[in-house]
Design a protein around this nucleic acid. Structure first.
Length: 122
RNA sequence: UGAGCUGGCCGGGCGACCGCGUGGGGCGCGAGCUCCCCGAGGAAGGUCCGGGCUCCACAGGGCAAGGUGGUGGGUAACUCCCACCCGGGGUGACCCGCGGGACAGUGCCACAGAAAGCAGACCGCCGCUCGCGCCUCACGGCGGGAGCGGUAAGGGUGAAACGGUGGUGUAAGAGACCACCAGCGUGCCGGGCGACCGGGACGGCUAGGUAAACCCCACCUGGAGCAAGGUCAAGAAGGAGGACGCCGCGAGGUGUCCUUCGCGCGGACGUUCGAGGGCUGCCCGCCCGAGUUCGCGGGUAGACCGCCAGAGGCUGUCGGUGACGGCAGCCCUAGAUGGAUGGUCGCCGACCGUGGUGCCGCGAGGCCCACGGGGACAGAACCCGGCCUACAGGCCAGCUCAUCCG
RNA sequence: UGGGGUAUGGGGUAAUUGGCAGCCCGACUGGUUCUGGUCCAGUUAGUCUAGGUUCGAGUCCUAGUACCCCAG
C-alpha cells in the first residue's frame, strides 16, 4: 500500500504524466514516467493507477489496483526524486498472478531508466 | 426410506511477514513518529418503486400528463408486507393472479361460416297456392319445381352462434308450457368491520368477448437531485473549438489565421494640470505611463463541511392470527474521495475427481488409504424501507405424499 | 446521478389497425462448363429470455438480460 503522500491525486498531473512522460509497455501493463525538468522542490515520487472497465468488473479491478499499489510501494526507492509515474493496467492483468505483474513492472521500469540514462526523451 | 412444500440461517477457519483508512492517546516547535480501537454484503449489484435530507417554486382551484386498482389492516411512505375474499393449478403440504367498470359512449372480433352483435335465416323441416311428370278406370298416391308464409329442432364453420338436459305440445317447431340445472336482476333473512358467503322468495326466460383498445370512475403525484446544498478562496497567465501548413511510422509536437470564453453592478481618482508603477521602506529627483483602485455580488482550479447515532441493532416481555406495535435493559457497529477496508505465503478444511489385490454389504452403495484440485455470486460512495436479479456448498425447523415396520 | 434507444436465419434489413414472418448477401446440394467463376434450380436456418392478456402476440403488458447513445 502507498501512503497518501506517494499517491497521485491531481488529475492535472495525471494527464501531464500520460502526455509528456516516457512510456514503456508489457503485455499486462503500460508505465508512463514524467520527471519535472526544473527541480520543483525535493518532493517524493508520486504514483497513480489507471484500470479501465475493460479489465473486468469492480471486484477484479480493485484486486488489480491493490496488487499494483503493493508492487509500486516496494519500488518507490528506485524512482527519481520528483518523478510522476502512471501505471495503466491492460485487460490481461486481470488474470495475471502477483509474480507475473511484478516481473512486468520491473521490466518496464528498467526500460524507462535505461532510456533516461542514454539521454532519450524529448 | 424416498419424493416434495414452506420458512429461517451460514456462506471458509487459524497463523506468519509486510501494509492502508477514520477516530482516540502519547512524544515533538514542526514535518512527523509511535501505541490502541474499529474497518464491506446478503445481495454492498441492477437502479424498478417509496421516503428522509437539501435547494428552487408555490394564495386557492381546475386542466393536462403520469401512476395505482378485490377487501381490511401494517407503515414515515410505497407499485412493498400481512390476513382474508374471489378465480385458477396441484392427490397434498402449498403455489399463481395489473383482480374496478362492457346498460356512459366509440372501436375491433382476421380466416371459416348463412349469420360475429342484433337482429336476421344458407341448406333443411312444415303448411298453403299454382304448374309439371309417373302410377290408377276413378277416388287418390308418389316424385320434383315455383311463389307466399311459419319455424330455429337438425347440418356444418369457428375461440365464441342468442341458455343446457328431458318432457308436454305442434303442421313443423319454439321457454309457448313444465321439471331439474346453470346464469341474470330485485328485494328479504342470517353471518362478516368489509370484499363476500349461506338460505329461501319473486321476476323475466337469457344477457357474447375484448378496457395489458380508446375510454369512464375512485385515489395519489410541484420540480430537481449529495456533482443537492453550504463555507473558505488563487491567478489574469491563458483556456476551448475549427481551417491550413511543417515535422514525426504513430501517439503527438509546432506555426499562421478565424471564432468564442477570460464575469456583472456601483463608487472614487486620472488621461500631459499625470491615476498608478519602478529605482526605494519614506522624501526629493529621474524613468515608464492609460488606466488604476475600492466596495458589493458571482465562484473556475483547489480545500473543507454535508458525512455517518440511525424510521439503528440485539435480548426480554406484553398486545395482535399475522405484518407490526408498546415497554424495559444492553451496545456503538466503515466513512474512502484517482477512491482505505488489503498483498504474499504456510497449515487445516467442507466438497470434487482418480486409483486400490483393503474392509462391510446379495446389491445399489458405505467406510478406510494414497494422489491431485479446492471455495459461489460479488466491492459501500448521502442515508433508510422494499422489489428484482446473481449465487459453489452447507445447516436448522415445521409440514405433505408414497412405501415399509410396530 | 438522471434520461433515451435497440435486439428478427451466419451478416444486413422489412412486416398497414394484433390475423399465413418476408427480402438481399452468405452457406450447402444439383445442373450448365474440360475446370473455376458467371448463370439456373432447390435446400438450410430466425422474432433476446421468462411469464401474462387475447380465439390468436414480432406487434400489447410485466419482469429480466445484453449492447449503444445523450446530459451533468
Amino acid at each position: 500500500m502507498l501512503t497518501r503522500e506517494s499517491r497521485l491525486t491531481s488529475s492535472q498531473l495525471f494527464s501531464w504524466a500520460v502526455r509528456t512522460g516516457r512510456r514503456a509497455g508489457t503485455s499486462t501493463l503500460v508505465l508512463h514516467l514524467a520527471v519535472p525538468s526544473t527541480e520543483t522542490a525535493g518532493r517524493r515520487p508520486q504514483v497513480g493507477f489507471v484500470v479501465s472497465k475493460a479489465v473486468g468488473p469492480a471486484v477484479t479491478r480493485n484486486l488489480v489496483k491493490r496488487r499494483l499499489r503493493h508492487l509500486a510501494r516496494e519500488r518507490l526507492s528506485s524512482l527519481p526524486g520528483s518523478g510522476v509515474l502512471v501505471v495503466r493496467a491492460l485487460p490481461p492483468a486481470a488474470t495475471a498472478s502477483y509474480a507475473v505483474l511484478g516481473d512486468d513492472f520491473d521490466r518496464a521500469l528498467d526500460r524507462l531508466e535505461r532510456r533516461s540514462q542514454t539521454g532519450g526523451g524529448r
